[in-house]
Amino acid sequence: MNCQQFQQRCTLEPACQEPAFLAHQQTCPNCAHFAQELAQFEASLHTALQITVPADLTKRILAQPANQPTITPSGRRFHWQLAASLLLAMSLSLSGLWWWSSSHTQPLEQQLMLYLAQEPKAFLTTQQVSLTELHQMFNAIGAKLVGEIGTVSFCKVLKLNGYTSAHLVLVENNQPINILLIRNSSIRQAEKLSYKNLQGILLPIQQGNIALVATSTESLQEIALRLQRVIKWI
């Protein structure tokens, strides 16, 4: 390896461990000096990239499955949940406690948007949910599906501010529309929702509230009306 080759390689891969590279560095003072100067820049670069990691990241990862109850635990999912429960027991996190306590003090609208922000699966899942799963979800919140709802890519039952709720994602024009049916909640006026680039509406319905959240509020009112026609509360 000559000096030109060394310096070119050093610029591209300062931590190169190839024998020829290391040998040249040891025998050529000029290149050793060149490498030393570059090392200072590399150290600064390394430092700049080392952004602070959330203190509770590990705990959140290990606790996460407990925040994602699925409706029909079967096969692999069941094992995942079982394991997740054990993991949770092993690593009950402060963040979990914080989440639990704050969930009882935040307004419903805020709680709802925070929940969505922490539920990436809602935006990532692409498989269509089966009708059986949908019926089970509606049943779990005391409702019944009595008509055509459209393509649903995600569904889940959860508690929002203590209210039994259902979260489903409708796929409309290839865009995910998050729907939350919050049973027995009592917000009586329509409200706008907003969090980062998510927007939505929260509306009073017969048995609580319905929230529709997407990247745009276009068509949300129409979808809300359509849903109310096909969902019967029991």
């Binding site: 959330p54 990241l57 959140r60 996460q64 394991a83 922000a117 990436p120 699966k121």
Partner: peptide
């Protein structure tokens, strides 16, 4: 953080 959680969910 969401990406990391999703990644580890899939990893599991």
């Amino acid at each position: 953080a969401d990406l990391v959680q999703e990644t580890f969910t899939r990893a599991w």
